[in-house]
Every structure is written in structure tokens, then in C-alpha cells.
Simulated assay, not measured.
Amino acid sequence: MGKYDIQLFVNPQAEYREYGDGEREILNQEAFAEAKEEISSWPGYEPTPLIELQGLAEESGVGGMWCKYEGTRFGIGSFKPTGPTYAMLGVLKKEVAKAIGGEVSSADLVEGKYAEITRDMVMAAATSGNHGRAMAWGAGMFGCRAVLYMNDGVSKGREEAIKSYGGEVVRVEGTYDETVEQLHVDAEAHGYSVISDQSTPEHPQVPRAIMQGYAMVADELIEQIGAPPTHVFVPGGGGILTGACCGHLWERYGRERPRLVVVEPTASCCLYESGRAGRPVKVESAASVMDGLVVEEASAEPVALLNAGAFAFLTVPDQAAVDAMRGAADPLGADPAVVIGDTGSAGWAGFLAAVGDGEIRAALGLDGDSRVAVVVTEGATDPAVYREIVGRTPEEVAGA
């Protein structure tokens, strides 16, 4: 028995075959090439770092360990600009093209060529922080408005971060799903375009565009790591990022792909339950330190990808996330200190929980030959929350 009360579901549906037509319908290299060309052209783009953690690898009894660190992405603090911002751009270009009766380029929007049109366009979403921050940043770049809906449990610091990029915040009492409901009511009433993990009749392409953009994370990891990893631990949530990583790694490596492990809070684990059921499952509203992963119902297409391609689904308690954040700030051996936000800690927490439990370690096939990559999706996106958990500021940890 390990240190934590964790749940593991090794996926019996995982098919170790080549990437198929059904998967390519959702995600494919051709569409990704377009996303990569676009995102890498934006001001400030550079690949996020892949941090080697040899001290932690030796302590954990694996051959090598790396952290794909998304806390530096476009200076926003998380991986999110690759997804919602990219999807938002597609919607904007489509709507402006409709208004002018011609083609529109990204450069046209960045340069403000159609500012008289875009300034009245509203891109809207429900958010726990990072999704909204990325949209507010993108709205500033492309010249539109971003209206972000947050439930009353989201910290004030995350609201202020969105506002600092020019985003408009609407607070809603209740759960995340109740916030989503209010978003859709207002969007229909005011003509907002919803940029969400769930498709809408007006913009059904948005979830796939978000996933295709998120595949940048996996693509950069592949380019940076050299020999392929044997295992990749990815935070769950609504499934878009995990689906993107699963699809991209599967298409790239085929039947020899790494074992993808989806990690969620035990309190809110819709992907774990969907994996067990073999179909999308809605779970009860809950609360977790890993607030950005608290989702009641995952998107259908990522669930289909994960149920066919993910090796396992793992849930961890909040204490594992707290311990991961503190451990990353106080590293082993010559490993660098890493500032991990609460939501971003899930993959790291899942790895530590797994190697600390003999049965789960064996079930995942983690041994001295394993090359493990952990996706850390954010830095300290709310410095006050980070300091409360870790006991030091992000600056103190980064400068240690």
C-alpha cells in the first residue's frame, strides 16, 4: 500500500495498433501543421522548456524523468494560449470574413486592419483562470473583447490576472457547470461567440481547434526529449489536453507509442469514470486544490480518443498535489527548483503516487528502464495561493 489513497484503472480498451481513420477525423498531422505554423508565428513564441530531473528519477527508481514545463508559455503562465487563443482566432477570422465578404489573415487582425469590426465582437467562456487569461491575452492581440465567466469559488487573484490583460469578468454563484449554463444564456441573448471544450451549433469546430493547438505541447516534447519516453503523465480535467497528447503521440509513434497516464483529482474524475464505463460519464460537483481540473463532464471526442488510446487513468487526493508542489520547490540532488501551480501539479503528483505504491508501479510498468515525462500545465498562476501552499513566494523558489 502506498502513501496515498489513489485509484488506478488500467484501460483494457487501449488498442496498440496504428492510428486509424476514426482518430484522424478528430486530430491529424495535416491540421496540426496549420496550427503549429500559426501559433509559432505569434509574437513571443518559443518552445517551453523540457526540464531533466535526474535526482528525482534516481530517487524514484526510473531510468530518466523530464518535466514539460508550461509555466513560461507566452508569458501567460500556462499551456492555454495554444488552445483557446488559437480557436478564438479561427472564429474571429471566419466572422470578419463574413462581414467583409473576403479573406482575412491573422496579420490583418494583429495590425488592427479590421478594428472597427472586431472591437464589437465578443469571445466568451467559462473559466477557472487559465483559459480566461489566455483568451483575454488573445483578445488584446487580435482586437476583440473577451468576457469570462467565473464561479464564486475561483480566487480573486485569478480574476485580477484576467483583468490585467483586458478581460471582462462576470461572477456567477454556484458550481462550474452552473457558470457554463449562465454563459450560454448570456451568449444567446447578446450574440457572444463561445470558445469552449464543448461544441456549439454556431461554432462546432472550436473543441477540435483547441485540441489541435494543445498538441503543440506533445509535439515540442517529442522534439526535445530525443529517445521516446515510455510513459507520459498528463493532467485530466475536461480531456482536451489529454486527448491532444494521446492523439499526437499515437499518430507519431503508432503501436509503439508511450503509455499515456491520465491524472485527475479523486474528488472530480470524469475521465477516470468515463474510462471505466467506456463512454462519457458525468460526475457530481466537487472541490479540489487542483481547481482547474474540476469538471463534471468531459468532451465526447477526447473521451473517444482516450478510451481507445490511453494506457491508464489515475486519481490522486489533494495532499498528493500539495506534496508535489512542495517537493518540486525543494528538489533532490542537482535538480532545479520548479514552480508548479495547484492545477498544474496533477501529473507530477500522479507520478510520485504511482512510484510510491508497489502494486500501481507494477501495473503501470514503471521500472529502472522507464523514461518518464510529466506535463506540468502551469506555473504559479495565483501567487497568493502558491505561497499559502508552499510557504514561499514563486520568486523565492525560482531564485533558490
Rank of each mutant, 00 (worst) to 15 (best):
F142W: 06
D219V: 11
T175Y: 14
T393Q: 10
P228F: 10
P336N: 05
E23Q: 13
I222G: 03
R257I: 12
F32D: 00
A354H: 04
G341R: 05
I117C: 08
E395C: 05
E359M: 08
R158V: 06
T85Q: 12
A136W: 00
I340T: 12
E34L: 15
F79Q: 01
G167A: 15
I26E: 02
R392V: 03
E359I: 04
M135I: 01
S268G: 13
A125G: 01
K36A: 06
P204M: 13
T175G: 13
V10F: 07
P383T: 14
N28V: 05
I117H: 05
P394W: 08
S299F: 00
M216C: 00
G191M: 09
Y4P: 01
E388Y: 01
M290I: 09
V169W: 14
G2E: 12
L183Q: 01
G55V: 11
G327R: 10
M121Q: 11
T127G: 02
Q7W: 12
V261K: 10
V390A: 10
R257D: 02
A312H: 07
L92F: 01
K98P: 00
S40K: 14
S60F: 09
A362P: 02
A308P: 00
D197T: 11
V263M: 06
E46F: 12
N11E: 05
G213Q: 03
V316E: 04
E37N: 03
K156Y: 12
A400G: 06
A57Y: 04
L183S: 03
E95I: 05
Y386Q: 01
K80H: 08
T48L: 06
D367P: 02
Q13K: 10
G309D: 08
G143K: 00
G132V: 00
Y165V: 15
Y272T: 03
I39H: 07
I210C: 12
A161E: 01
G191R: 12
C67M: 14
G61E: 10
G278C: 10
G138C: 00
A218M: 12
L183T: 01
M135K: 00
S164G: 09
G391N: 11
G333K: 04
V263K: 03
T242H: 15
S41P: 10
L109R: 02
T118V: 00
A35N: 02
M1G: 15
K93G: 07
K68S: 15
P201V: 09
E223A: 13
M290E: 03
